[in-house]
Design a binder for these strands. Structure first.
Lengths: 147, 147
DNA sequence: TTGATTTGTTAGCTATATCTAACATTATAT
DNA sequence: ATATAATGTTAGATATAGCTAACAAATCAA
């Protein structure tokens, strides 16, 4: 039931595009990820099979409830790693983006939570331990500041 | 010329076994990595093709100069990530081992250096910035403490 | 409204990485 | 010295993830 890196990448992209455009096109995903339309087609069919998106040929791409929640988690994991790389280690935005993408797929929820809490604390966003939990409610402070 | 994750994993294992045993057997690698002997066979042939190991059927596995240096780097990257996960985030040894393995393959040299320096500094192993560089000489303090 | 352009799909190929099963070689023990 | 066990190899299958090229459907413009 676990997604492959590739599937996560596609799901993340769909989620992000959903929040900026009203229509998602296969071509758009392909361009964004630097893949061919054929590859995207394969990918969305595999996501459909996993019931993470609804899709009919030539139709709209829609995230299912499960797909949406999984995507949210993936994006959030990405943000956690990126924040750490940029703010704590001093990586560049571009570098952080690339590496976060790859790293987030291999970290356990527990590690992600630890990393988020550590980073928040170091940055003074929370006093001691914000109790961040990627699967549940985010700490109020973190939510307010969107970190 | 870049190795795949899988190749890195095999190379790392060979390097580590070399330092503990005088003989490396295909079966041993297979057990250590939880793969079949057939898979190991494929892998060592691909490493041979990359000139990272010397190997003749039924013979000894030997790291070439290039293989040895690459392996050293992989192991060191692994240690950097593991140290951070355990000492800074408080992960368990087991968890850190698993995640470090996966993470190290995607981090740039630059990020690894930053992570090492950050961890060393936080742990008080170095005063300010130990100047750790995975490709060159390690800082004297780090080398002495083997971190 | 119809032809051109854009968008999406399908078929078939490639490469990596795994597996199982069968076979070959080497080592061991009596 | 030879049978058995351990070790190593090969062949062939599967799955993922990508590609190109050819085709199909939808959209747009004249």
């Amino acid at each position: 039931m676990d997604l492959t890196n590739s599937q996560e990448e596609y799901l993340k992209t769909i989620y992000i595009l959903k929040n900026t455009k009203n229509e998602i096109r296969v071509t758009e995903i392909a361009n964004k990820l630097g893949k061919t339309k054929a590859s995207v087609n394969n990918a969305i069919n595999s996501l459909k099979q996993e019931k993470l998106i609804n899709y009919e040929p030539y139709g709209q791409i829609e995230l299912t409830k499960e797909g949406e929640s999984l995507a949210r988690k993936i994006v959030e994991a990405n943000d956690i790693v990126k924040l750490f790389l940029i703010e704590i280690l001093g990586s560049t935005e571009e570098n952080a983006e690339n590496e976060a993408k790859a790293i987030k797929t291999v970290l356990s929820d527990d590690t992600l939570n630890k990393l988020a809490r550590y980073t928040h604390k170091e940055l003074g966003l929370s006093s001691l331990d914000c109790g961040y939990d990627i699967n549940n409610q985010r700490c109020i402070e973190c939510a307010r500041r969107n970190v």
